[in-house]
Design a protein around this nucleic acid. Structure first.
Lengths: 190, 190
DNA sequence: GTGATTTCTTAAAGTACATTAAGCTTTGTA
DNA sequence: TACAAAGCTTAATGTACTTTAAGAAATCAC
């Protein structure tokens, strides 16, 4: 499995020496997941943060009535985990599942904590990653509060065109917070 | 204006030497805001991140139809800004207004960028701050997608009891994404 | 203190979306 | 290749929430 994508991803924000890159790469666990396979299941302790090398993952929450809410889709070059449970090393409240066959690089909490100490540049890297994630989630809150389902759907397609074509309408609907039936109505009226 | 609260806030995650603390404090601009005064207005370039020393601030978004959506309330010991526009030094899309008379310590983007270089421990501090903000916003997305207005209201009161008693129902309603009239109905039926 | 604003409440009517259910289409599997 | 399972569509009915409006209560300004 190639480490080029993850190294390019790091280089967007920090510059590592070849030795540092080698050390970082040595901490990564490459994993392959079949379509529908689970990277993380609710209740499991979430020990890794995952970098998507190829494929597509979906993180979702199941409420008491077993209704799914899709929290995020993660395509190539994205990082994904149940952040809350990863940071606190608690049982996950999210499920993360492979939408299509995927290649993932996993970094454990323990190794990441070492990395912060041995190569403080990683503090900067993850500071920027977390900043961007915060801004993205806040924008989603704003959109969920101020836009209609139809507007959110068109925003979603415009922002993530590659994802829109790979996932089911049921999954898109659960990302938008509506039923698949209503999404079908929205799509019908053009 | 006292710098103790902000120094205690830093000490939750990093240890600074007395000289570093003095340097950090020298970068802060203390400001007082009257009730209803604006810390930031939509369209202004957002140059500061704000630490709330006392009082209460509210960040909100105005959509095309001038409907308000409250993005966050910030009480003592909280940091608040329009993060997206602060990071990119772009015109703000959010408004930040003082709910009650407030004392605020402002740190500019320029000074923060210097701080990251001169005292890399601040990378860690803001990494943790951003992590927590991300987790909080993601939890809000989950709740907005999976809970009814009534459940969100009770969650809000349970989580932020001090805020619930200081702001108007109109402001709470705009945080929950419902109308004040409907919030009144929810409150009426107990 | 008094009038003017803003906030809160209540209720009737309207709308965006959910639920249920049925038929149709596509995908997965022996 | 065939059947089962899952996904998509459509429509009727239901519900959570909005809109409008009007009056009562609280807060603000002079």
């Amino acid at each position: 499995m190639s480490f080029d994508p993850i190294l390019s991803n790091l280089r967007k924000h920090i510059a590592l020496s070849p030795a540092e890159e080698t050390y970082f790469v040595s901490l990564l666990k490459p994993k392959r997941f079949q379509k529908k396979e689970f990277i993380l299941k609710e209740g499991q302790v979430c020990k890794h943060i995952n970098f998507v090398n190829s494929g597509l993952l979906r993180a979702f929450y199941l409420n008491q009535e077993n209704k799914e809410s899709t929290i995020m889709f993660a395509i190539s070059d994205w990082w994904v985990t149940d952040m809350h449970c990863f940071l606190e090393e608690k049982p996950a409240m999210l499920n993360i599942q492979s939408v299509s066959e995927s290649e993932v690089l996993q970094l454990s909490k323990i190794d990441l904590d070492h990395l912060y100490i041995e190569i403080p540049k990683f503090e900067r890297f993850f500071r920027i990653l977390m900043q961007n994630a915060y801004v993205r989630e806040q924008l989603r809150v704003i959109q969920n509060l101020s836009l209609s389902a139809e507007e959110r759907y068109h925003n979603f397609l415009a922002k993530y065109p590659q994802i829109g074509s790979q996932v089911t309408q049921k999954q898109i609907a659960s990302y938008l917070g509506i039923t698949p039936e209503f999404l079908s109505v929205i799509r019908g009226q053009k």
